[in-house]
Amino acid sequence: MLSIIFKENKRMNESRKIHLLVALPSALLLASGQAFAHENQHEAVSTEAVDKTQQLWGLAADPGTADQTITISMSDDMRFSPEKLSVREGETVTFKIRNEGEMMHEFVLGTEETLAEHAALMVKFPGMEHSEPYMVHVPPGETGEVNWTFNKSGHFDFACLIAGHYQSGMVGTIAVEVSDK
């Protein structure tokens, strides 16, 4: 089936190629039952193992393995509190994300570049469905959780990428300091 898609893809113009590249991963996630819409997703319940693919900003951790827990609040003024964090390289953190607003918000870890790219896609495709271990969608009045190991030092970011939220300044930073170990 993929060979048919790729043969057909050769005949498509550039605009259609881009749409296929954006839609194909979402379609595959939807078919596998792992997709979640930003507007109506509640805490994802999964029986699958955590995807521990290395990212520039670290890798997913199993629940219950954290060295520390950091609580972050989100609000409809398009801000996180706190918005600046510091952790040690090698540290595993459980982020408890509270939505104190009246609209859906999300918490997504990444780099400034990856978050900006994803935010631009969210503006074009606001109903885009996906779920990664470095993000959580939190309905009003609820709490979500992300478990993450920061195995690389550097400066990383977190943001709400729901269309308009990122553009309104709903971002924060994480300084991952070199470990003394």
Rank of each mutant, 00 (worst) to 15 (best):
K17V: 13
Q55Y: 08
V138C: 02
R88S: 00
E8C: 04
S73F: 09
M78Q: 11
L109K: 05
H38L: 06
A49C: 06
G64Y: 06
R11H: 12
A44W: 04
D77Q: 12
P126L: 00
E14I: 10
A116V: 15
G33C: 10
I4M: 08
E132Y: 07
M122E: 12
H165M: 01
G169H: 13
T173A: 02
H130M: 14
Y166C: 05
M78G: 02
H19Q: 15
A23M: 08
M103L: 06
K152Q: 15
T53P: 09
F36P: 09
E100V: 03
L59Y: 14
K17Q: 14
V123T: 14
A49L: 05
S32Q: 12
G127I: 12
N9V: 08
E145N: 10
K181N: 10
S26T: 12
M78F: 11
F80G: 00
Y166M: 11
Q54C: 00
F158T: 09
S86C: 06
L2P: 00
Q167W: 13
G172Q: 05
K96Y: 05
S81N: 15
M170A: 03
E145A: 07
E8L: 03
I70D: 11
V123D: 14
E39R: 15
A66P: 08
I174Q: 12
F6E: 12
G144Y: 06
M1G: 09
V45G: 10
S75W: 01
P82S: 07
S179L: 02
R16W: 14
Q167Y: 06
P25D: 09
D180R: 13
